[in-house]
C-alpha cells in the first residue's frame, strides 16, 4: 500500500476538466497532491482529526495523509446549495448531500494552508450587491444599480426607462423536465413594474451600449484579460446567450490602472483567484461582476499558461 503526503489539496468534482489540467501540471512538476471530487466521495475512506488538523484518505490500495505540511487548497465547490431540487430526495440522498457538503466546508480546518479561495471569502464575494459596493469603493466605474421589488420605485429617475435587469444570484428554476435560466436582459421599467414584482427583488442597472465584454482572470499576482466578440464586433446584452462556436476570444491589454484595480478588488475580497467581468465602452471600463469560482478553462489556449500558472501558484503561493 502506497502512502502519500500531499502538499496540495484539490477539492473539485469529477467532470471539472480544467482541474485535470492543473493536476497534470502538478504531476509534471513533481508536486504531490490529493484531488477529492464531491460527486465521488463515498468511493473513498476518509478519516479526519479536526483538532490536530489531519486527514487520511484511502482509495484502492493507496492512501494519502494530510497534516501541517499541506501548503495550499484549490476550492472548486459551491459554498451552499442555491436551488431547491424539483423532486424530493430520498432520505439517503438527503443524508449524503447534507453531510458531505458540510464535510467539504469543514475542511476549512486546514487553516494554515493558503486557500484558492477560502470558502468564507467565496461566500461573501459571491454576493452581487456586496461586490458592487466594494468595486465602487475601490474606484471602478459601476453601472447605476437599484435592487427593488417595489413597482413604485423611481427607476426612471434613478436610472432610465430602458434598463438591464438581472437576478441577484444565479437563477436556475427546474420545472419537470425543463429548466429556466436567467440571463442579463435589456428591457424597460414599465415592463417590470407590474403586480408580480413584489414576489422577488430585481436588480436594475443602467445599460452599457456598444460594449466589448472582457474577462479578467487573476491567480495570485498574475492576470490575463480576454475580449469576447462575435467576429470583430462586440455583443449587446448577455454574451452567454450566443452559441460558443460563434464567439471569438483574444487577448486584450488593460491599462495599468485597471489591472491594479482588479488586483486590489481581488485582495479586498480576500480572494487569491478571481474571474472578473468588465465591459469596455466609449473609452471607459465598467465593473460588471466578479466570480470567485469562475471558469477559466475556456480561456486556456495553448501557450496561454493559465493552468501552468495555477499549478505553480499552488506549489508556491505568490500572495
Amino acid at each position: 500500500m502506497s502512502n502519500n503526503k500531499p502538499s496540495v489539496l484539490i477539492l473539485s468534482s469529477l467532470l471539472d476538466f480544467p482541474t485535470d489540467r492543473i493536476c497534470h501540471n502538478l504531476t509534471n512538476q513533481g508536486i504531490s497532491f490529493l484531488r477529492i471530487n464531491r460527486d465521488a466521495l463515498d468511493d473513498l475512506s476518509i478519516t479526519v482529526d479536526p483538532i490536530k488538523a489531519t486527514m487520511t484518505c484511502c482509495h484502492n490500495q493507496h492512501s494519502w495523509h494530510i497534516d501541517s505540511s499541506l501548503k495550499t487548497v484549490w476550492w472548486r465547490q459551491p459554498t451552499f446549495l442555491r436551488n431547491t431540487p424539483n423532486k424530493a430526495l430520498l432520505p439517503e440522498e438527503q443524508l449524503k448531500q447534507s453531510q458531505w457538503g458540510a464535510f467539504m466546508r469543514g475542511l476549512m480546518l486546514f487553516d494554515e494552508a493558503a486557500w484558492y479561495n477560502h470558502p468564507a471569502a467565496t461566500y461573501q464575494a459571491e454576493s452581487k450587491p456586496y461586490q458592487l459596493r466594494r468595486a465602487a469603493k475601490l474606484g471602478f466605474s459601476v453601472p447605476t444599480t437599484i435592487i427593488t421589488n417595489d413597482r413604485h420605485a423611481k427607476i426612471q429617475e434613478l436610472i432610465s426607462e430602458n434598463i438591464a435587469i438581472k437576478s441577484i444570484d444565479t437563477l436556475l428554476l427546474r420545472e419537470n423536465s425543463k429548466q429556466h435560466f436567467g440571463y442579463t436582459t435589456l428591457t424597460t421599467w414599465s415592463e417590470c413594474a407590474d403586480e408580480f414584482l413584489h414576489l422577488a427583488p430585481l436588480t436594475c442597472q443602467s445599460i452599457i451600449a456598444s460594449k466589448i465584454d472582457l474577462r479578467v482572470t487573476i491567480i495570485g499576482n498574475k492576470l490575463w484579460c480576454d475580449e469576447i466578440n462575435i467576429g470583430n464586433n462586440g455583443i449587446d446584452g448577455d454574451w452567454r446567450l450566443i452559441k460558443k462556436e460563434d464567439l471569438s476570444f483574444r487577448s486584450f491589454s488593460l491599462p495599468p490602472t485597471i489591472e491594479e484595480k482588479c488586483f486590489l478588488l481581488t485582495k479586498d475580497l480576500g480572494l487569491r483567484y478571481g474571474a472578473i467581468d468588465l465591459a469596455y465602452s466609449e473609452g471607459e471600463f465598467w465593473f460588471i461582476e466578479i466570480n470567485p469560482t469562475g471558469e477559466w478553462g475556456w480561456l486556456d489556449r495553448p501557450g496561454r499558461g493559465i493552468s501552468e500558472a495555477i499549478a505553480g501558484e499552488l506549489q508556491c503561493p505568490s500572495v
Binding site: 473539485s12 471539472d16 476538466f17 480544467p18 489540467r21 497534470h24 459551491p78 442555491r82 436551488n83 469562475g294
Partner: peptide, 22 residues
C-alpha cells in the same frame, strides 16, 4: 482535458449554482 472535444469545457458539474448552464 486536452481533447479538442472537451478542451474548453466549463463543466464543473455545478448544477446547484447553474454556472455551467450558462
Amino acid at each position: 482535458a486536452y481533447d479538442p472535444r472537451h478542451a474548453q469545457s466549463t463543466k464543473k458539474n455545478d448544477i446547484e449554482t447553474g454556472e455551467d448552464q450558462k
